[in-house]
Every structure is written in structure tokens, then in C-alpha cells.
């Protein structure tokens, strides 16, 4: 797990051997997680890798096939209902009522969480201001833009100030500008002590997390902080420049010691296995002396090295 082994760490989520099968199909396979309180933790992975299923298992929405989950210090099994006031969940698909207005939705969710009278009104005003929804209070939720819907959903999920917040691909319908804004809100929540688990398939978002898990086909392929993941990567990044890069890419990809080669602008970004001692020499031999330099690994490189057919331990 993470390199931090200090005894005092309190975990918001602890999962051991968490699995979920749908018939023959294994959606989540022996997932182990330890997410410290007050951090933002990311699930990074392609479509269908089991991000939503994992979140549903951790919120108690789905019954796990195997494994144990501890949420906020309590075993999930048997404490689902009492934990519900302490966790918030923003679903991947918009799950508020399209034919209710923004305010009506907030009113409804507020009442469901037991807010009433002045306290409810004050909290709703606060959220409307915080998530910039004041002009939309009378608009039907169904008629709002993707970004507005997502802000409303976040407002509803955080209405009761949960200690643990699950966000399932919260920014999939949001432009980069609003995504920045959205992440500012997440860091505000985090600073106030909320633990956040967020799933995404955007590298830049994953990079903002304190720690993340890279998932593929229900398996956790790697986890740790973005920095640690990049440092401990099992490949070296070499950037090759020159001409006829398309043909070169073909020859390089076929080589067993090369994990991947991808064209990025005028360069070819090549991931060479760590066991190759002098990657620059190795590449220049393969590429007929084209110019090549060592590059800093990115999270995308980490992702490529730990997923796909060429995945190596």
C-alpha cells in the first residue's frame, strides 16, 4: 500500500478481498483498499473496469460476493443504515428528479436528511451560493446543462455535510474550465475534513488526487500517490524525434522489451522496460540513430505500463 506506515493513521475506508460477481462475470476482483481520512482518493480506469461497482459495494448499495469493508471505523455489514447519514454519494447517472426544480430537489433531499424549517432554508441558501445555482432555483433539473446538473448533484450529495463522499465520474459532462472550478470545491470540502473517493477516466483529474488506484477489468493494477506511482514505474520513458515516425512506431511496438510507443506531436513516446540497462543506446540501435532523450514519466505512462496486454508485475 502507501509508503506511510505510521500507527496513528485513521482510515475512512478499509476493504479486504472485496469481490463482486455478476453470474460468471467478475466485476470486482479481490480489491484491497486503505483510504486515510481527509484525503482525496481516485479510481482511475477505462469503461467497465469496475469503478461504479466498487463504489456501490463501498456504499452498501450492492451486496459483496466476498470480502470485508470497514467504513469510518465501522464494519459496513450491519451498519449500512446508520452509516447513511455519514456518507454522501453522487451517482454517475444524474439521479435527482428531472421534473422538480433546483430548489424543490434540494428541499426534498434536505427533508430526507431530516433538515427542517430555518435550518434547512439556511443550508440550502448556503449551497445555492456555493455551487453558483442561485439564478437557477426555479429551473427544472431536467432542463439544465451537464455542468449545472453536476453542481446540483454535488450540492445534494453534500447537503448533510457527510464525512465521506463518493463521487462517481462527477465531471464526465463538464468542460475543462468548470472542471477546475469543480476540483476547487472538492479541495474545499477536503480541507474541511471530508474524505473523498472519486472515480474518473481523466489523467489530469487522477493526478490531483492524494492517492489513486489504477483499475482494469475488476483488478487493482497499482496504487499510491501519483508521485510514487511515477517514480516506481516499471519502464523508462524515451522520446524519439525524427522523420518516418509511423514506420518506426510499428517496429518498436513489436519489440518484446518495449511496452508501448505512441506518437505525440513530432515525438514518439516510447516506454522501455526497466531491465534494459541503457535505454538510449537501445533505442538508437533500433531506430537507426534517430535522436532520443530521456523524459519525465507521466501518469499516463504509469497507466499504460500497468494496463493492457503488456501489463507486467
Amino acid at each position: 500500500m502507501t509508503s506511510n506506515n505510521s500507527e496513528q493513521i485513521e482510515y475512512a475506508i478499509e476493504a479486504k478481498g472485496l469481490s463482486k460477481r455478476f453470474g460468471e462475470n467478475i466485476a470486482v476482483n479481490k480489491l484491497d483498499l486503505k483510504i486515510p481520512k481527509g484525503s482525496i482518493y481516485g479510481f482511475l480506469g477505462p469503461n467497465g473496469c469496475g469503478k461504479s461497482t466498487s463504489i456501490r459495494l463501498l456504499t452498501g448499495l450492492l451486496e459483496a460476493s466476498e470480502g470485508d469493508v470497514t467504513i469510518l471505523g465501522k464494519p459496513l455489514q450491519g451498519h449500512e443504515e446508520s452509516l447513511k447519514t455519514r456518507i454522501g454519494y453522487m451517482t454517475q447517472k444524474f439521479s435527482l428528479y428531472d421534473n422538480l426544480t433546483v430548489r424543490e430537489n434540494l428541499d426534498f433531499v434536505g427533508a430526507i436528511y431530516g433538515f427542517a424549517g430555518k435550518r434547512k432554508k439556511a443550508r440550502i441558501e448556503e449551497l445555492l451560493a456555493l455551487y453558483d445555482l442561485e439564478k437557477q432555483t426555479k429551473q427544472f433539473a431536467g432542463s439544465m446543462s451537464g455542468g449545472q446538473k453536476q453542481r446540483l448533484a454535488l450540492a445534494c450529495a453534500t447537503l448533510h455535510s457527510p464525512e465521506l463522499l463518493f463521487l462517481d465520474e462527477p465531471t464526465s459532462a463538464v468542460d475543462p474550465e468548470n472542471r477546475r472550478e469543480f476540483w476547487e470545491r472538492l479541495f474545499d470540502l477536503c480541507a474541511a475534513g471530508t474524505t473523498i473517493l472519486v472515480s474518473t477516466h481523466y489523467m489530469d483529474e487522477a493526478e490531483r488526487c492524494h492517492a489513486l488506484a489504477i483499475m482494469e477489468e475488476g483488478n487493482k493494477r497499482a496504487d499510491g500517490s501519483p508521485q510514487a506511482l511515477m517514480e516506481s514505474m516499471s519502464a523508462t520513458v524515451v522520446e524519439v524525434s525524427g522523420n518516418k515516425l509511423r514506420q518506426l512506431k510499428q517496429t518498436l511496438t513489436d519489440h518484446p522489451d518495449i511496452l508501448s510507443a505512441a506518437q505525440i506531436g513530432a515525438h514518439l513516446r516510447v516506454l522501455v522496460k526497466k531491465k534494459v540497462h541503457d535505454p538510449l543506446l537501445f533505442i538508437s540501435e533500433l531506430s537507426n540513430g534517430r535522436e532520443s532523450i530521456l523524459a519525465r514519466p507521466s501518469l499516463e505512462d504509469v497507466f499504460v505500463t500497468c494496463t493492457g496486454e503488456r501489463y507486467v508485475d
Binding site: 443504515e81 447517472k93 433531499v109 430526507i112
Partner: peptide, 14 residues
């Protein structure tokens, strides 16, 4: 069918 249930069941509603 409208996906509202997924949110509703993570709330304390009985």
C-alpha cells in the same frame, strides 16, 4: 428506471 433509486437508497430514508 429513472435512476433516482440509486441516490435514494444511499439516504437514510426508510
Amino acid at each position: 428506471e429513472h435512476g433516482n433509486m440509486e441516490f435514494l437508497i444511499t439516504t437514510p430514508v426508510r
